Computed example of a mutant assay.
Amino acid sequence: MFVQLNDRVFLNLDKITRTKIDHVEDGIRVRFYEGQDQVAKSQRFEDVKQAQKWLKKLLKAS
């Protein structure tokens, strides 16, 4: 099943093996992986709770 991450990126959730909420240089992002390879990342969030809420909403929509 495909979900739209933003205006240019669609993600096939059937191939995603894991997600990770990660602290990076510019903030907090949700990263999507197929096996060992990162295939997409979300926009920047201010805190982990916002990232979790966004991810739950994205997964519910699918």
Rank of each mutant, 00 (worst) to 15 (best):
Q43W: 10
Q4I: 05
D37M: 13
F32C: 05
A51C: 10
V30L: 00
F2Y: 14
K60H: 14
L13K: 12
F45Y: 15
D26A: 12
E46V: 15
F10V: 04
N6S: 08
L55H: 09
K20I: 12
R31Y: 00
R31E: 08
H23P: 06
E34S: 05
D14C: 07
D47M: 15
K15M: 07
L13H: 12
R29D: 03
L5M: 05
G27I: 02
K41Y: 10
L13T: 10
A40T: 01
K20L: 15
S62F: 11
L58H: 05
A40M: 03
K60E: 15
S62W: 11
A51E: 06
S42Y: 01
N6W: 06
N12H: 08
D47P: 11
D22L: 08
K41I: 04
D37N: 12
I28K: 03
I21H: 01
G27F: 03
E25G: 12
V39K: 02
F10L: 08
I28C: 06
D47H: 15
D14M: 08
R31S: 03
A61S: 15
F10D: 04
T19V: 04
W54N: 00
D26S: 12
I28G: 07
V48M: 07
L11Y: 04
F2E: 14
R29T: 06
S42V: 01
K56C: 02
N6Y: 05
A51K: 00
S42D: 06
R31A: 04
M1S: 09
E34P: 00
D47Y: 15
E25S: 12
Q36G: 09
T17Q: 06
F32D: 00
V30Y: 00
K15G: 03
R44N: 14
Q52Y: 05
Q52V: 10
H23F: 13
K49L: 15
K60W: 12
D47V: 15
L59D: 12
Y33N: 05
V3A: 11
Q38N: 08
G27L: 01
Q50W: 01
T19H: 02
W54E: 01
